[in-house]
Computed example of a mutant assay.
Amino acid sequence: MKTRHSIQLMDTHAGGDVSRIVTGGIDPLPGKTVREQMEYLRDNADGLRELLLFEPYGIPEMSVDLIVPATNPEAAAGYIIMEVMGYPIYSGSNTLCTATAVLEAGIVEKREGVQHFKLEAPAGLVNIEATVKDGVVEPITCEGLPSYIDTYHASIHVPGIGDVTYSVAYSGGFYALVDAEQLGFKLVREEERALAESAYKIVEAIKAERGFSHYTLGDVGPLPFLHFMGPEEQVADGYIRSRSTTYVHPGVICRSTTGTGTSARLALMNHEGRLNIGDKLETVSLRETGFIGTFTGRHQQGNFQVVENTITGRSYVLANSEIVINCDDPMVNCGKLHHILTDR
């Protein structure tokens, strides 16, 4: 086995959440679908995720997106999402970043004005609308996953906090939705550590009490996420703005409000009968960045009213780089990824 390898990256961010897009250096993965390729990576080569998210190359607050050939002929490219908690089948911020990267890298031809194409996520096809101005990719609108409310206004006693009222939505992962004001939070930057600590306690208490099952996917694992909801401001007819914060892992608060968190909020507003087709929700983060969720439709799936939606945001390119992987480095474990490296 060679002791030195290289991987090509494009670092991007959407709303402050950094996504490292892997554009080269990885061999094609086995699998008839992007979902199967994701499962292979998860089960047989998790070293790539660990390499790029932890020391000495990265930090847990980042995400990684591996661009792979699409298996669906309608898609321009596929992508596999890797985060500190594992392999989500969909992510709004990662989709915004990947859509920007495939345009900036020339994988999809960049044309002035508005253009449309599809990407293939592990969750399936995602429609993308991109705006290019003066050769620069500006706003991206992507489909959010169909979202619904599983649990509405349940209560749980959380040690160290007290009784907490929460709802649970599915929007690509299960989210506990909590009113920030009931816990005394204003959702400002100075509260970031306290928000992470409170969210951890609430999520662990809910996980200890119960699990959740998707109506078609079944068991998708224990509750991973919590979304703090701030007060709503009516900006215009059909347009609401709200401060928001998403917790994804012990100690990790997302820099952005997250696309899936925004979709979860839309599902809650629909459940409460407060949405009309075309209505928008702008979520604003601790860092004053935002995503706009648009309610595009609803349909019934068994006992659940499912919300169709889109997420609009902007991703920025931070760097193009080639990292050197030195397998002699005691801080680098090549054992779980050497077999997928192109230059092995």
Rank of each mutant, 00 (worst) to 15 (best):
F228M: 02
G135T: 00
E192F: 08
S213K: 15
S213L: 14
G124K: 04
Y200T: 13
G230N: 11
K133H: 08
D150I: 10
L217V: 01
K133S: 13
S167M: 10
P224K: 14
H214M: 05
E129L: 01
A176H: 13
I128L: 06
E129D: 10
P222W: 04
G218M: 01
V126A: 10
V168A: 04
A194G: 08
E197N: 07
K207C: 12
T141G: 00
E109Y: 09
F185Y: 06
Q182D: 14
D134A: 15
F228I: 07
A130V: 00
G113N: 05
K118V: 07
E209A: 11
D150Y: 13
K118L: 10
E143T: 03
V114A: 01
Q115Y: 07
L119K: 01
K118A: 11
K207W: 03
A196M: 13
F212P: 12
I149T: 04
E191H: 02
D163I: 12
K133C: 14
V220T: 14
V126E: 03
S198A: 15
S167K: 11
S171W: 11
K201N: 09
P159S: 06
V168L: 08
F225M: 12
Q182E: 15
V203K: 14
H214K: 13
V164L: 15
E181S: 15
R193Y: 09
V126C: 11
Q182L: 12
I128H: 01
R210E: 00
D179K: 15
A130Y: 04
S171F: 09
G221N: 03
S198P: 05
V126K: 08
L177Y: 06
G162H: 04
L195E: 02
V164R: 07
I140T: 04
G144Q: 01
S147Y: 05
A154H: 12
S198I: 08
H153N: 15
R189M: 13
T151C: 13
L195Y: 02
V137T: 03
V178M: 07
K118Q: 04
V178L: 11
S167G: 09
R210S: 00
G124M: 10
A208I: 10
